[in-house]
Design a protein around this nucleic acid. Structure first.
Lengths: 344, 344
DNA sequence: CTGAAAGCGCTAACAT
DNA sequence: ATGTTAGCGCTTTCAG
């Protein structure tokens, strides 16, 4: 057990100058020896390496980056709602893995779906001169980023499209996924389908509602919004919403929940219910297969990977107009959607 | 829709010098005007602000940090196995939230439980002069970090303790949690309890096995390891392990799975089994309540928060010997552990 | 193969 | 209230 003075107050780190002095070479030679760029005699390299080890030298990445210029940064920023949501964390995971292949590092920040905080965090990351930014934005407009793009910082929007800004995006086919869910329930004989939705200002939410409505109206069910409850942003709110819907007269025979948090809340709220409604949720659930929950599924890791690809293309000089990648969202039928509606 | 030239190749950002020139003041005045430090005439401030806006100026955080010194960095690094694992992402979430209160930013990197990659990433983060480092380490020893601590960089180990290094740590009471799980199964009449464990080199895993063994041996069940299967690091491996255990003669009447991935695999593997064994898993599951899975539960967000607190204390000059915070892990009984063993 | 000088963009220290 | 000078630690010229 090495027992050294506990940390706290920093105490001067050695710089290249000290390493050079200790090994009796010039600063530049020391630099070359340690970075492996340019020619250095083997013996010199050894001496420098030893001196560095002895001093506990570690290159100052800040200084290096300042000198080399911002385009040499290896940091990519990710802004998302909340890392604790598996959708975002899987997205982050896919993004990170792909970036690493290109020697880029991911730096993440959570916005808690707060537009003001998001803007602040975007600024922080840009000041840090990140190489690019991936954003699952909760803001209503993104025109303020136009200046940045002019300076060459690529942005990739994920999950939600940019508004008032021409930028790359990786989106989910929300409408189609929701449409399939509704169509399936309708085909199963359901007519009164409750919908519990997220914050109504979010485009993902609106698209899902649109797809749902499409299928309903096509089946002539124009009063679909009688059973629509929105702005259930967390699990607890979803539990309450289910309670409300199920206590109506007549109650809905099926439920469509527009994201994983809400589906979780619905499952909780329906527990122990004598005749639970059929259920389809948007987003896969951790144990969806074991629980037998029918879901609209998609691949968050894949979204992250695609975002990384778009970003890399821009960094490599792609100057085409904005790309838009749409990742499929498809129905995965399991038991929860299969009980038919009561005769009634 | 603002339509500007697509990005790609960077194109010189304005620096403070240009802002100063455009507004007809010295660089330092421009600096003061924009940072709000020191006295600047209101009118001057306006002029500078306008010039900055017009040029799309954004302060270069790299240069600022180099000048101000590394202790002014606002970055804290987190290294963990994989952000896609809810345990780590919830930990990250708690950590980030607490850090933000102190105006610190989290930068994350996943090690995939690969010691070599972990070491490389630690180096990258240190070169970036992060203010401190939180590590869920997968390495066998950490002596190589001693030099860093001497330079004042605080480390906080989470989930797994440091080896060969005196540093702060936030750990789970793995032994006690596992002991409770085993004791509960034993009290329920189980004698043949299968255990599926993670990589045997991980200390968390070993501690959980130790706690389990303690309870078993105390009950006189010294052959507990006949039904022990280790190194099931992913869900698929866990599914296979369950299959193997259940096909033994006689099969175990209960199962203890040592982390969330393994529990998930076990649930999958047991699906449709005519007489599934009782089950207790370590770590809470997303839908554990709905599924009725008995778990050893704990609070990952809390761990993150505690880690942030320890870090802040060190940054504020705390020079005491290493702190060790132990977060409780307790049994939460639900249905899955409650079927008694068959008479046999 | 090695070295000296200049400078990345900013701010601390010291003027004025 | 504002300006000047120097320098953070490194790498990029440009010379040897």
């Amino acid at each position: 057990m090495t027992s050294d003075p506990p940390p706290g107050k920093p105490s001067g780190r050695p710089s290249l100058v000290q390493v050079a002095q200790l090994s009796g070479v010039s600063v530049k030679t020391a630099s070359r020896a340690l970075s492996g760029e340019g020619y250095v005699a083997d013996e010199t390299r050894m001496r420098v390496q030893n001196a560095a080890d002895q001093l506990g030298y570690r290159i100052n990445g800040i200084a290096r980056e300042l000198r080399r210029g911002a385009k040499t940064s290896t940091l990519v920023g990710l802004l998302s709602g909340d890392l604790a949501n598996p959708f975002y964390s899987r997205l982050a995971s896919g993004l990170e893995r792909e970036l690493r292949r290109h020697h880029l590092q991911l730096i993440t920040a959570s916005t808690d779906e707060d537009p003001a905080l998001e803007r602040e965090l975007i600024n922080t990351l840009l000041e840090r001169r990140v190489r690019g930014l991936v954003v699952a934005s909760t803001m209503a407009a993104h025109g303020f980023l136009a200046a940045e793009r002019r300076h060459g910082i690529p942005f990739v929007f994920v999950d939600r499209p940019p508004v008032g800004l021409a930028a790359d995006a990786v989106l989910l086919d929300n409408r189609e996924g929701a449409r399939q869910a509704a169509a399936h329930l309708i085909a199963g004989g359901h007519r009164r389908i409750g919908v519990i939705g997220d914050l109504s200002r979010l485009s993902t939410h609106r698209d899902r509602i649109t797809g749902f409505a499409e299928a309903m109206e096509q089946a002539g069910l124009n009063d679909w919004d009688e059973y629509l409850l929105e702005d259930a942003h967390d699990t607890a709110a979803a539990v309450r919403a289910v309670g409300e819907l199920l206590s109506r007269e007549p109650p809905p025979t099926a439920l469509f929940t527009t994201n994983n948090r809400i589906t979780t809340g619905a499952l909780r709220g329906m527990r122990g219910h004598p005749s639970p409604p059929a259920l389809i949720g948007f987003d896969e659930l951790e144990l969806g297969d074991v629980l037998g929950v029918t879901v609209v599924t998609h691949d968050p890791e894949e979204m992250g990977q695609q975002a990384a690809r778009l970003l890399m293309a821009r960094l490599n000089g792609d100057r085409e107009p904005p790309h838009r990648v749409v990742v499929p969202a498809t129905l995965l039928v399991r038991a929860s959607s299969e009980h038919p509606p009561p005769p009634n």
